[in-house]
Design a protein around this nucleic acid. Structure first.
Length: 593
RNA sequence: GCCGAUGUAGCUCAACGGUAGAGCAAUCGCCUUGUAAGUGAUAGGUUAUGGGUUCGAUUCCCAUCAUCGGCUCCA
């Protein structure tokens, strides 16, 4: 069993580094106010209310001062105090006063998180600095390795994370046990930068976002659109194999529909302003479900029709606040790989089993092997019968167990209309991304009065399950780019092989080879520029094309191609037919090479 | 939306209160090449947009738009 982060030395180290930083900041700005400063993943931060914005030069100064404080090697001394004593000690610190009030009431800890027992109020002293703090800390500042800390950046953050509160300045820092660990962490950041889908999107000419079109609206370039096409084609094939029906629905719908579905009530802030058409108001769709429900309701449904599975690559538009857009990950117009399942209560557990295993199959097909699940259950405020909630939650949990997926339960974390499972994948450098979501909906079937006729001739309410496996095609593409660092598996590569003639006299032969490979469904291009072979190889490498096929006098003579992989590996010369078979096999087996 | 930073050629970046330059890419030549950059020339910019200050603004100021790092929110 791994040690909990909260109990580890590195946690105490980061917490201690936060105190040292706060001291350095207060020395520079004696009138500054301090808020809170906890350890976080990979480091720590501290929030301050300061008279002016901090600059990168300030950070350097603060970091240098931190090293001096560390050198003093002063001990961290813990003291327990009464609330009144604490108030006296922090008399010039309004944020600390607020925290002390909270501690005295006994409902929250010094970070504002709810706690069971009324906490003891403790303070920690080190060098010239005193902080309201639960600890724990290192024994002394000298235990911090001055060469293993680094201040990263400054950012705004609301006091207690509430946007109605004042905006503070948050300094992020990182701290490690050894300089080697710090170096490795910085290397990881560099690596993540290299894989940034926004950078690769430009370099590989996959997509762009134009200021002239609008923020958060993605333009898919030919190579990106090819990958999207391949993803969608695979997605469609798999859905057809699994008894889905495809539906297609429009981009706008009348206001009455959205009133009925409830979206104008609980989702209005994410919807765009209405469009007036012949004195009726229409809204851009933020979701596809009301349309799918209308299709369901276009006829009387029998128990014999169930389960029904409606799938659509449905493009939706959601208003996102201006500061939140991020490449492909967070956009204003996107296509969900959406589907709605309608089933009878008796079919429900089996239907969940299917959706979960189908979801895992889909994610694994794209090279995501590490998948974690999050089960969110009934919140305080919820619609729908409690029995249905329980049955649904049980089905979700049982299904996760059967599938052998690691999961965490988020009690009360479900939406008001139903419990859900979210699946997160780990990418090649260990970052988690949320993709799939499987959610029950107890709201819309009621609002639309959806029914089916049972054997007994009576009308019953079906279960409705809403799911997206890839999430959105845009986000999924972004994750895919970062996961593979732009070097897509062969079946997804927009160009699978680049044919490189050594001299102009080999171009005709190269084109013949290209024709031959294209006839097998391979995506190949001939680099017929009069450049040197070395330059052509360099360009193909930079484009991360899986195979480079060099053809010169020798190959032309023998009807061969000389093969180089993008890894630099040389496979030597082989017959065109042999390469064709090799590449076709790579595609079928989804080889990553 | 909020806090902070940024916006100069297709890309990466210089420079400057007196109307801008490099490398790569592009175009046109020459070279005809054996596994990551051959070579010469040419072209390319109302310095994001709109105001203001100034004799003069791309540079200083304001607003808007967009991007980046975060916060809040989320597929």
């Amino acid at each position: 069993m791994a040690e909990k982060y909260e109990d580890s030395k590195i946690y105490r180290l980061r917490h201690s580094a936060a105190h040292v930083m706060a001291q350095a900041v207060l020395e520079k700005f004696p009138e500054g106010k301090v808020a809170i400063g906890p350890p976080i993943e990979d480091g720590f931060y501290y929030d301050f209310d300061l008279p002016r914005p901090l600059t990168p030069e300030d950070l350097e100064e603060i970091e240098a001062r931190m090293r001096e404080i560390i050198k003093n090697n002063s001990p961290f001394i813990r003291e327990e105090v009464s609330a009144d004593e604490a108030r006296k000690i922090f008399k010039d610190q309004p944020y600390k006063q607020e925290l002390i009030d909270g501690l005295e009431e006994g409902k929250v800890d010094e970070h504002g998180n709810p706690v069971e027992e009324k906490p003891v109020i403790s303070i920690y002293k080190s060098d010239e600095f005193v902080d309201l703090c639960r600890g724990p800390h290192l024994e002394s500042t000298g235990q911090i390795n001055p060469k293993a800390i680094k201040l990263m950046n400054v950012a705004g953050a609301y006091w207690r994370g509430d946007e109605h509160n004042p905006m503070l300045q948050r300094i992020y820092g990182t701290a490690w046990l050894s300089p080697k660990d710090l170096k490795q962490y910085l290397w990881r950041l560099e690596e993540a930068k290299k894989r940034d889908h926004r950078k690769l999107g430009r370099e590989l000419d996959l997509f762009s976002v134009s200021e002239n079109v609008g923020a958060g609206l993605v333009l898919w370039h030919p190579k990106g659109a090819m990958i999207r096409h391949l993803v969608e084609r695979f997605w469609q094939d798999e859905h057809l194999k699994n008894n889905y029906s495809f539906v297609n629905t429009p981009h706008i719908g009348k206001s009455d529909l959205w009133k009925k579905s409830g979206h104008l009530g609980f989702y209005a802030e994410n919807m765009y302003a209405p469009i007036d058409i012949e004195e009726q108001q229409y809204f851009l769709k933020p979701m596809n479900c009301p349309f799918h429900i209308e299709i369901y309701k276009s006829d009387i449904r029998s128990y014999r029709d169930l389960p029904m599975r409606y799938a659509e690559l449905g493009t939706v538009y959601r208003y996102e606040r201006s500061g939140v857009m991020h490449g492909l990950m967070r956009v204003r117009g996107f296509t969900q790989d959406d589907a709605h399942h309608f089933c009878a209560p008796s079919q429900m557990p089996e239907e969940i089993d299917f959706v979960l295993s189908f979801s895992l199959h889909m994610l694994r097909s794209f090279g995501f092997d590490e998948i974690n699940a999050y089960l969110s259950t009934r919140p305080e405020k919820a619609v729908g019968e409690p029995e249905r909630w329980h049955a649904a939650e049980a089905a979700l949990e049982e299904s996760l167990k059967r599938a052998g997926v690691d999961y965490e339960v988020d009690e009360g974390g479900g939406a008001f209309y139903g419990p859900k499972i979210d699946l997160k994948v780990k990418d090649a450098i260990g970052r988690e991304w949320q993709l799939s979501t499987i959610q029950f909906d107890f709201n819309e079937p009621e609002r639309f009065d959806m029914t089916y006729i049972e054997e007994d001739g009576q009308a019953y309410r079906p279960y409705m399950i809403h799911r997206a496996l890839l999430g959105s095609i845009e986000r999924f593409f972004g994750v895919l780019i970062e996961h593979y660092g732009g070097a897509f598996p062969i079946w997804l590569s927009p160009v699978q092989a680049k044919i490189i003639p050594i001299a102009d006299r080999h171009v005709d032969f190269a084109k013949e080879v290209a024709m031959e490979l294209k006839s097998a469904g391979l995506r190949v291009e001939v680099d017929d520029r009069s450049d040197r072979m070395n330059a052509k190889i360099r360009d193909a490498e930079k484009a991360k094309i899986p195979y480079m096929l060099v053809v010169g006098d020798r190959e032309m003579e023998a009807g061969q191609v000389d093969i180089r992989r993008r890894s630099g590996e040389r496979l030597g010369a082989m017959q065109v037919e042999a390469f064709k078979a090799l590449a076709v096999k790579d595609v079928a087996e989804k080889v990553e090479g």
